[in-house]
């Protein structure tokens, strides 16, 4: 049997919020442990996306971990593929594969590659890693779904730095032409990239303006507010228009010494870092 969708107007009760907060905390801890084990990967842009993925995979998306290839499932493409640690942690928590498998990330013969590989990892709908390509794939998926009469939604997560890739705007220009109101692009707007702030590297006059002028419905949200994320993702949107959800986030969110620090874009998490980070998260969890 296909899984039940969470209905759009169900809202979140206290129990739901506690559950989602618990998942977000667990995912954050798994991200840090995974990165400590692999001594590689991208902590900052993984931690900024924890609540977005939690809200999608634990409340919003119609999915069934027991049937990763269920044809009517909602689709998710992690266009910012370097945030694979948070993707894998989320999929593991959701039951696509055992949490213990996270320790194999980036090791020989692992199903968990440095960047997502749909041919290896259960639950990964599309391979990604070369920045700027995921939104085009999602435009094709959403168009293909509409043409075939499927009701599923397509979600794409991009980085704000990634939006410097020209292909993003080719895709952004095309989605409104095809009336893809079954497509949601979520920008993890953490304002940092590898070499500095996005404003230093390549400023945009207005990120919302760019999407809006391309013909998208544009909404902004606090990307760490689970209640707000779920609400905006489940709300009805403009018919005939794709939705760009610009999520204000903090790179390295949840770990004091990683937050808003550009060097944590891609820095190995040492044993000491891990201990301190997990201690901080334990205190947060106890509150």
């Amino acid at each position: 049997m296909p899984p039940q969708a969470h209905t759009a107007n169900a809202g979140l009760d206290t129990h739901d919020m506690t559950r989602l907060q618990g998942e977000a905390l667990a995912i954050r801890r798994l991200v840090l442990k995974t990165l400590n084990k692999s001594q590689a990967g991208h902590p900052g842009g993984s931690l900024s996306a924890v609540e977005i993925l939690t809200s999608l995979y634990f409340q919003v998306m119609r999915i069934d971990p027991a049937q990763p290839n269920w044809p009517e499932r909602d689709r998710f493409v992690l266009s910012k593929g370097h945030a694979s640690p948070v993707y894998y942690a989320t999929l593991a928590r959701r039951g696509y594969f055992p949490e213990t498998e996270l320790a194999t990330h980036d090791t020989l013969n692992s199903r968990l590659q440095g960047h997502p590989d749909m041919r290896k990892t259960p639950g990964v709908d599309m391979s990604s890693g070369s920045l700027g390509q995921g939104l085009s794939v999602c435009v094709g998926l959403a168009l293909g779904a509409k043409m075939a009469g499927h009701a599923y939604r397509v979600y794409c997560m991009l980085g704000d730095g990634e939006c410097q890739e020209g292909q993003v705007w080719e895709a952004a220009m095309s989605a409104p032409k095809f009336g893809l109101d079954n497509l949601t692009a979520i920008v993890d707007w953490n304002r940092l990239q590898l070499m500095g702030t996005v404003d230093e590297i390549m400023p945009t006059h207005s990120l919302p303006g760019l999407w809006r002028e391309m013909g998208w419905e544009v909404l902004e949200v606090d990307g760490h507010d689970l209640m707000a994320l779920v609400k905006v993702l489940q709300a009805p949107h403009s018919a005939g228009k794709p939705l760009a959800l610009l999520a204000h986030t903090v790179k390295g969110k949840g770990v004091s010494f990683m937050e808003n620090r550009v060097e944590w874009h891609a820095k190995p998490v040492s044993g000491e870092d891990l201990k301190q980070a997990l201690d901080e998260l334990s205190q947060e969890g106890a509150q």
Binding site: S136, V139, A142, L143, G144, A148
Partner: peptide, 19 residues
Amino acid sequence: GIAEQNMVGMAAGLALAGW
């Protein structure tokens, strides 16, 4: 339109959708 990169990416998505 004149956007070959998007065309190939869209084709990948359409293939994922069974086309």
